[in-house]
């Protein structure tokens, strides 16, 4: 069959499609994106593919080294801890608690925080001013400290951790979206749209939202990293998830005293945290740059 496409058709990409095209040229970014998708899939289907149930303890295999070390066994691919729990299964379950928990919290605070931010940004005068100064006060407290304060009121526990992180992230989103909407409102194309007789809702839909995607992306990735760090930090301090739950930070603190005897029990959950945060940041920064480049 003859090739019809003799002349190269000129394709007009929308700015977002163009940004995606630019992102695809970024090799490290694409590797990180695939890794992130892998972690996401692992989070969703983890319980079905983990080799052992979450509370499975094998007393005959305490502190087994990872399988590639001399005394390791392939049944326990990443080795076991002092109670004979398989580390691979624990880390896979932990992905749900640490990464999945952070993901859900960020999604919820993104929705609620941006809604408040948009309402605040579109309004003016007293209403906006109150929101503005209230948020300034909240933002002056570091998110981990804020989370610890909330935990100290609610008491330790995994669910309370998520709640605390959610409440700590909320002002971050609201503030960023508020600023972005406010800056956007004063631009000339918004004034032009208003002169056309557009309603505020239409201005928001066609004028503002498409132009603040960059804020959403950078803010979401930043929030995701800080949520993971906060959840693991609270777990490590013993304020978050408690031990039967294989939350990565909790796993770290639980095996700290074994660090000379069985270093893999500390290293591997730590590596999981490190790698997850690294790929989120690479993807976030890559997307942000691609979106900014796609604008002009």
């Amino acid at each position: 069959m003859a090739n019809h496409n003799v002349f190269r058709e000129e394709h007009i990409r929308s700015p977002l499609a163009h940004s995606w095209f630019l992102y695809q040229q970024n090799t490290i970014g694409m590797v990180a994106l695939w890794a992130l998708i892998f972690v996401l899939i692992l989070t969703v289907i983890g319980p079905w593919i983990a080799p052992y149930p979450m509370d499975h303890k094998d007393v005959s295999a305490l502190l087994k080294a990872p399988s590639w070390v001399e005394h390791g066994e392939v049944h326990f691919f990443l080795g076991t801890d002092d109670l004979g729990r398989d580390l691979l299964s624990q880390i896979i379950y932990g992905a749900q608690l640490t990464f999945g928990g952070a993901f859900l919290t960020v999604a919820l605070s993104l929705l609620l925080g941006s809604a408040i931010g948009i309402i605040g940004g579109m309004s003016s005068g007293m209403q906006a001013s109150i929101l503005h100064h209230f948020l300034d006060t909240l933002l002056s407290i570091p998110s981990l400290l804020l989370a610890i304060i909330i935990i100290s009121v609610l008491g330790p526990g995994y669910f309370n951790t998520l709640l605390a992180v959610f409440l700590a992230l909320l002002p971050l989103f609201t503030r960023a979206v508020y600023r972005a909407v406010h800056d956007e409102l004063n631009k000339e194309y918004i004034i032009a749209l208003r002169l056309d007789g557009a309603t505020p809702l239409r201005i928001l839909r066609y004028g503002i939202l498409p132009n603040i995607v960059e804020t959403f992306v950078s803010q979401t990735t930043r929030a995701l990293t800080s949520a993971i760090l906060d959840i693991t930090a609270l777990g490590f301090l013993g304020l978050g998830a408690q031990r039967p739950l294989p939350e990565w930070g909790t796993m770290l603190s639980d095996t700290m005293e074994l660090v000379f005897l069985a270093p893999w029990t500390v290293t591997l959950p730590g590596m999981a945290i490190l790698v997850t945060i690294l790929i989120i940041n690479i993807v976030g920064e890559g997307l942000r740059q691609a979106i900014l480049k796609g604008m002009d």
Binding site: S14, L16, E188, Y189, A192, Y206, P210, N211, D296
Partner: peptide, 13 residues
């Protein structure tokens, strides 16, 4: 408007 680069929405056809 004075400046055509800012008076057209960059995300609209």
């Amino acid at each position: 408007f004075q400046d055509p680069t800012t008076s057209l929405n960059p995300r609209s056809q």
